[in-house]
Amino acid sequence: DIRKYTSPARGSKKWGKLYKERTAVERVNAYLKEFFGLNHVRHRTGKKARLHFQLVTLVYNASRLATDRIKKMKSEQMSKAA
């Protein structure tokens, strides 16, 4: 039974690593749906929906990159000051 006996086996190190990756991706998906409006995309064609998704992910990645760089700069400044 595939529902009882999964591959990789539950509780193994490989399963734990895979589960961590999956939860990280699901957190990002939930964030995009909640704050960028991907829950309510209504386009007649797949092309428009795909473009909308690509623009949202571009903005999300750019904002994450900017915040990570700002945090890094601040931590470097704090370490120099100390």
Rank of each mutant, 00 (worst) to 15 (best):
T6M: 08
K71R: 05
I70V: 07
N29S: 10
H40D: 13
T67W: 09
Y31M: 03
I2L: 14
T23W: 06
K17H: 09
Y5F: 14
L32K: 01
Y5D: 09
T67A: 08
E76S: 06
L18G: 11
K48P: 00
R44L: 08
K17T: 08
R27H: 04
L32A: 07
V28Y: 00
A82H: 15
A82I: 13
R64F: 06
E21I: 03
T6Q: 13
R64Q: 12
T67E: 11
K80T: 05
S7D: 07
V59C: 06
A49K: 14
K14E: 15
Y5N: 11
S79G: 02
A82V: 14
T57N: 06
F35R: 05
K17L: 07
E76H: 11
A9V: 14
A82S: 13
M73W: 11
W15G: 00
K71L: 04
H43T: 14
R10D: 14
A9T: 15
K14D: 15
L58W: 10
F36C: 02
S63A: 12
A49D: 03
T57M: 12
T45I: 01
K20T: 07
K33D: 13
Y31S: 05
G37P: 00
A30D: 10
D68H: 13
A9K: 14
T23C: 04
L58R: 13
A66C: 06
R27K: 08
V59T: 11
K13N: 06
F36Q: 00
T6R: 13
S7V: 05
R42H: 15
K48W: 13
V25I: 03
S7A: 03
S75Y: 05
T67N: 04
Y31N: 04
K72P: 00
Q54I: 01
F35H: 12
E34L: 05
K71P: 00
K48G: 07
D1A: 14
K47M: 04
A82Y: 14
G37L: 00
A9E: 15
K33C: 15
L18C: 12
